[in-house]
C-alpha cells in the first residue's frame, strides 16, 4: 500500500515536460495512423473484391472526386498559418503569433463547415453498395478529427491570448503543430481514396 508522506515539490523545466509531450503525441499519432491506414486498406480491399458487383450498384451515384481535396486545401491553409504562429511564438512575437493562431482556427472552422456541407449533400444513401459505406466512414471520421483539432487550435489561440506561451514555453504549440500536420495527412489519405471510385 502506498502512503502519502511529507510534501515534496519538484520543478521540471518546460523543455523536459515538452519533450515528453512531443513523444506522447507522436505515439498517439501512430495509433491514429493505424486506424487511418486500416480505413485505406478496407477501402481498396472492398473496391478490388467487389463482391457480387456490390461496390457501386448499377446507376449508383458517386461523390465529386475533388470534394476531399477542398477540405484538405482549407486544412493546409490552417496548418501553414499555425506553423507561422509557432515560429512567432519561438521568437516571442506575441502580436503575430496570436493573429496566426486565430486565423488558423478560422481556417479550421471553415474546413469543418465545408466538410459538413459535403456530408449533408452526399448524393447517395449509406446502404447503396460498399463505396457509399466507405464514403460515409471517411467523411464522418474526418469530421470527428476536425472538431477535435478545432478544440486544440482554438485552445492554443486562447492560451496565447492569455500570455501562456513564450520562447521558453513553446511546447504546446509545437505538439499541436505535429498533430495538425497529421490531420492534414489523414484528410489527404481520405481524399486520395475517394479519387478511386
Amino acid at each position: 500500500m502506498t502512503t502519502p508522506t511529507h510534501e515534496v515539490m519538484h520543478h521540471e523545466s518546460a523543455a523536459t515536460v515538452g519533450v515528453r509531450d512531443r513523444q506522447g503525441v507522436l505515439l498517439l499519432v501512430l495509433a491514429d495512423a493505424a486506424f487511418a491506414l486500416s480505413v485505406v486498406f478496407s477501402y481498396f480491399y472492398l473496391r478490388m473484391g467487389n463482391t457480387q458487383n456490390g461496390w457501386i450498384p448499377v446507376d449508383g451515384a458517386t461523390a465529386d472526386k475533388m470534394n476531399g481535396w477542398i477540405v484538405v486545401g482549407a486544412l493546409i491553409a490552417s496548418a501553414l498559418l499555425f506553423r507561422l504562429g509557432y515560429q512567432a511564438t519561438v521568437l516571442s512575437n506575441k502580436g503575430k503569433s496570436l493573429a496566426c493562431y486565430s486565423l488558423a482556427g478560422i481556417a479550421l472552422l471553415v474546413s469543418i463547415w465545408i466538410q459538413l456541407q459535403q456530408i449533408l449533400h452526399i448524393p447517395f444513401g449509406i446502404s447503396e453498395g460498399t463505396y457509399s459505406s466507405c464514403y460515409y466512414l471517411i467523411t464522418y471520421t474526418n469530421l470527428i478529427h476536425l472538431v477535435l483539432t478545432a478544440f486544440i487550435v482554438l485552445g492554443i489561440a486562447n492560451r496565447d491570448r492569455m500570455d501562456l506561451f513564450d520562447s521558453e514555453k513553446h511546447w504546446h504549440p509545437l505538439v499541436s503543430n505535429i498533430w495538425l500536420n497529421w490531420v492534414v495527412i489523414s484528410a489527404a489519405l481520405g481524399a486520395i481514396c475517394t479519387m478511386f471510385v
Partner: peptide, 14 residues
Amino acid sequence: AFGANFFNPEFGGS
C-alpha cells in the same frame, strides 16, 4: 445501426 454494407456480401461487403 445504419445499414452500411462493409461485411454484408450481398451488397459488396466481405
